[in-house]
Every structure is written in structure tokens, then in C-alpha cells.
Amino acid sequence: MFQNIWQILNDHQERLWTALGNTLRIAFLGFAFAFILGTLIALVRTNPSRHPLMLVAKKILEGYVLLIRGLPTTVQMLLWFFLIFPVALQVRMPAVVIAMIAFSVDGSAYISETIRGAVQSIDKGQMEAGRAAGLTNFQTMQKVILPQAFRNAIPQLGNELISMTKGTSVVGWITVMDLTFTTNLIVSTTFDVVHPYIILAVSYLIIVYILTFLIKILEKAVFKTNAFGKQANKNFSRRRSFR
């Protein structure tokens, strides 16, 4: 059995590395853009301004989140690939890029909700204290609210990264050579259904375990310095000069 697995890994090295690269690229870049987009959406949706433009923007984004969450990721991806880019926009775009866009957009809807929830769960005294000190809404968001909200959202964001990573296994639908699609091709040429799929499953497991581990480390680091003031005495001697 290990002989066979080794054989497959050896024979298809190049394709498998490319496949791993595609899976990780779509997952990580997709998540990164989803995070940025989701944060921006959350910022608008939690903005207290009653300006008409802001109210319109909020409504539009509410609709956006509703629409995106109402469609399966795969369906969204197919729409981007077969309708939006070639027909509506008439732009040629590599399938990998389209996959990335689809996952960014899909992820942004969920992440915006995560961050919106995290922002709203921060004690409103924090914003009031910032405003009372003469900071703008934006400054207080940037320096006080978002850092706390991100910190609290790390576990949930970690979940979203992991589920997005696993979710990329459908990109074969639009011809992207990711781990799953490549494995399917290997199966159809070698007629070996056992070993390629074992390799596939183990690959995803390893990726997810590594991610889980990294998220844990991040969580620990962030919660230590921020919540319990472990950093408290580190800079102590430096400050001494002021007294």
C-alpha cells in the first residue's frame, strides 16, 4: 500500500505540487481579500452616521450579504465563470483568478457578519470614551474598537479560513487544477480509485491541522499580550527615564 502511494506521489509529483499550490493560493488569497472586503462592509454597516448616502450604502450591503449567503459557493463560482466574466463583462480571466474572486466574494459576506457581530459586542463605552476625547468615529474604530473586535473574532475567523480552504475542493467545476480535480484526473487515467483518494484525504487533513495549529498559536499570542497585560513589565525599565 505505501509502495503504491509512493509510486503515485512520485509519478505525478509535478501535477500534485501545482495542485497543492492552486488549492492554497485560492484559499489564502481568497481569505485575505474576503477579510479586507468583509471588514470594509462591516465598517459601513456599523457606522452610526445618518447621512443619506450612508443609509443607501448600508441597504445595498445588507442586500449584498443576503444575496451572497443565499447562493451556494459553487453556484456563485459557475455564475462568475460562465456568465459574469465571459457574457456580462466580456473579459477573459484565468480560471484560478475567477475561483479566487468567487471565494473572496462569498467569504466576505460571512466575514463581514463575523466582524460586525464582534464590533457590536464591544462595550459601547469604548466608542464613547474615544469620541469624548475628541477622536473621530473612524479613529476610534481603527485604534480601539477594531483591534478588540479582531481579537475576539480570531476563533471564528479561523473557522472561516478552514472552511474556505476545504470549500475550494469544488474549483474543478471551472477547470482549476486543484488537489481534488487533479486527483480525479489521476484516478481516471490510472484506474486506481483507492490510493489517490487516500492521498487526497490525508492532504486536506494535514493542511487543516497545520492551520488549526497556527490559529491556536495566534490566539495564544494575542490574548496573552492584550488581555492579561503580560507585556506589562517588559518595557518597564525604558519608561523609568521619564520619572
Partner: peptide, 14 residues
């Protein structure tokens, strides 16, 4: 200057 009953120190900084 405004001082709150519940202090409202910024929880994420020294």
C-alpha cells in the same frame, strides 16, 4: 474633559 462612571479605559492598550 469627560469622566464616565464606568471608566471606559481603552481595553486594548496600556
Amino acid at each position: 474633559g469627560f469622566v464616565f462612571q464606568s471608566f471606559n479605559l481603552f481595553a486594548n492598550m496600556t
